[in-house]
Structure formats: structure tokens, C-alpha cells
Design a protein around this nucleic acid. Sequence first.
DNA 1: TAGATTGTTAATCGATTAACAATC
DNA 2: TAGATTGTTAATCGATTAACAATC
Lengths: 209, 209
Amino acid sequence: MEKKKAVSIAVVRRLPRYYRYLEELLRNNITKISSKELSDRMGLTASQIRQDFNCFGGFGQQGYGYNVELLYSEISEILGISTVKDAIIIGVGNLGRALANNRDFFMHGFRLVGAFDVNMDIVGRTVGGQTVRHSDELEKFLEENHVDMAILSVPPTVVRSMVDRLTACGIKAFWNFSNVDIRIEGVMFENVHLVDSLMTLHYRMLDKK
Amino acid sequence: MEKKKAVSIAVVRRLPRYYRYLEELLRNNITKISSKELSDRMGLTASQIRQDFNCFGGFGQQGYGYNVELLYSEISEILGISTVKDAIIIGVGNLGRALANNRDFFMHGFRLVGAFDVNMDIVGRTVGGQTVRHSDELEKFLEENHVDMAILSVPPTVVRSMVDRLTACGIKAFWNFSNVDIRIEGVMFENVHLVDSLMTLHYRMLDKK
DNA sequence: TAGATTGTTAATCGATTAACAATC
DNA sequence: TAGATTGTTAATCGATTAACAATC
């Protein structure tokens, strides 16, 4: 019925970027933009931009270009910004705290509904508007509350068992900062492997010289 | 002379992953592995693994497979782990502090040699073994010290001017957390756009249902 | 209407996968 | 030697770019 050949991951990963650039255009009161002009700003080809947008429908007008406001709202719609999903954070160390306290992360389709840690010095503190609970309470919490996604900022050694517990409770999406790859059928992992990113940069710096 | 057709970015981004998996094999005292076996563990094809390694040379042995220790040391060599580069961090808010204090990030080819912020509440504190300096001292510091790379964890509004100042002082590599894209000829940006990552996850979660 | 720019089909390019001869 | 598995060439697949007819 709504079959139209799945949108490739390459396209999906460009969507937030389009969203950002359109946001900026709006801020600057630019009402109209052509694929050529946008491609210059973003460092893409005009052709790619038109191809990308046409995965979702024809948002432009021949001879004119794209209406920025319309395009922005279409892309917001596609990204589903207005559909708020419930997230919890597991591991409230330095990184976890930074993530939980960053309002920016929770203005784009997610809200934080819980925070967990095993460290008794941290349990009871407040991060991102949530009182940190002990990880032992996880199963009980998940039984009583609706949660769509879990942020993983725990040490690599405990990730696997944590993911097992969470998936057992029905969690099917993870924003994973643990630098460990996990693949489970039907479960979605968005990995942010910071060490990998850093090593890639390092390699490219050597390469350059 | 050492011309052999540049290694594609897709391959480069897999290198740290190979490195991680090989590290784990070593930890488990596994001395030998075939491309097939590694491909099962990593969720790649054996063919891709052999292609990837052969961008850098033949590390295997027909009929046997790969010696884990040798392969690990070759990949370490390729990634240049032992060549330590000097990094500074600009912006020591929640995220900047988490990055600076994470020893893990500075055990893979980088060391932190300076930290800067404009907030007087933060200037003078210690993060990642460095006393936070005021950003006004940046140019003087860069004149007197060798710096290869700058970590950008400042608000989006000030990134551009900060990058301009840093590139004017000769910095040619950035680990960029600011969620702003900057492109400058001859300057390398490794972007970690956390909000983009989160929005991508959000989209994929909607898509699923 | 003429000019501009889209939507879309076709061509190209690059990356992944398959196949197999080389060889340990 | 026979079996296994690499290194490497060829085939396939998918994503990007180019081209152009449709149309505002």
C-alpha cells in the first residue's frame, strides 16, 4: 500500500542536515531557494538534493525552486519531530550527565523520562530534570512506564548485559555511546563511537602529510 | 613513489572497528582468525574484509588465515596509534568536560595539552589534567606551544569565529561537536553531530512501525 | 511567451560481493 | 599431497551525477 522502495540510509542521514540548513534560511528570512543555491551552501550537488527530496514527494515548483517554509515543514514532518518518544539514560557518568543535561538533544522528538546508574554517589542526584534511580529498579520502572528508547553511556564491559535486560523488557531502540557493537534482530542501534571517530581523524591527519 | 590509489573513506572508517575486534581476540587469546570467522563476528562479508586489508598489504597466509597479533600490530601501525598528536579543547561546558576527562579518548594517538573557555567560573579549573585558560589567551598559547588538533565543543554561534582564529594560527584539524558544518580548503573536520544522530534514530524508529 | 528550475530517466562512478587461481 | 584460505580480478549492486523533457 505505502510501498515505494525504502529510502536508503545515505539519504536518511542527510535529512537532519537539510533540516539544519533550512532552519538557518528561515532565520535569515529567505523564503525561496533553488536546488543549485542550496547545493552551493551545503557542498552537495543540486542533482543529489533534488533526488533526495523526491524520495518523499515533489516539494518544489518548476521554474521557481523550493519554498523554504514549506520544505522545512515537510522535512520536519518526515523526521517526525512532533512525535515525541520517551527515552531513558543508562549510565550517568561524565558523558551521560552531559547528554542528559543538554536540552538540545531533547528538543528533537525525544524527552527524557528516567535516568539510571549503579553508583550510589550518583543515585538520587538530578540530571536533565530526572532523579537518578539505581539500575536495580530498571525492570520495575519499565513495567510501570512507557519507554521507547534507551541511551547507553555505560562502560563497555556491562553494555551487553544491560542491553539484554532492556530488550527483555521490550526496548527496541538504543542510542549507543559505549563503543561496543551489538546486533540484535529487530532492535535498532544508533552507534556513536567516539573513539572510532577520533582514531579516524588521527589516521587522516597522518595521511595528509 | 608511494602512490597506490588513495584508500576510500569507507575503508578508513572500518579500521578502528577492526582494531577493536582484534583487540578483543587478543584478550581472549585467539591467535589465528580467517576472514570468514571475522566476518561472522563483525557482521561483514569475508570478501570485504580481505579487500580492506589488501588496501594496505597482504597480512594473511593462504590456507591459514591471519595471525591475530600480527594483524593487530599492522592495523595499529596503519592507524598510527603510536604517533602522538597534541590536542586542545575549546569549550569546557558539560560535554567538553566529559570529553576532556575521558582518558579513553586520549589513549589513541592524542594527548590533551590545553583547555580553553570564556566562562570565568570555569577558567582556572582543571579538566583532563589541564588548567582551563581563558580563550583570550588562545593566540599567545598557540604561538608558544605545538598543537595539531582542536576539539570544538562550543555553542554553534561562536564556532565559525573560533575556527577562523584557530586556522589563522595554523590549526588544520578539528574534532567538531558543535553541530555546525564548516568547510575550509586544506582543513580537516571530523564532525560528531549528536543532534543529527539522534534525529536519524528518531526517523528510523517511526519508519519501523 | 521565454526563462528558469524542477522531477525523473539515463549514465557514470565507486563500493561491495562473488569467483577463482595462487599458494601455504 | 589435499584442503583451506588468501590475494586479486571480474561481476554486481547501489548511490551519485548528468541530462533533459515537463512545466511553472
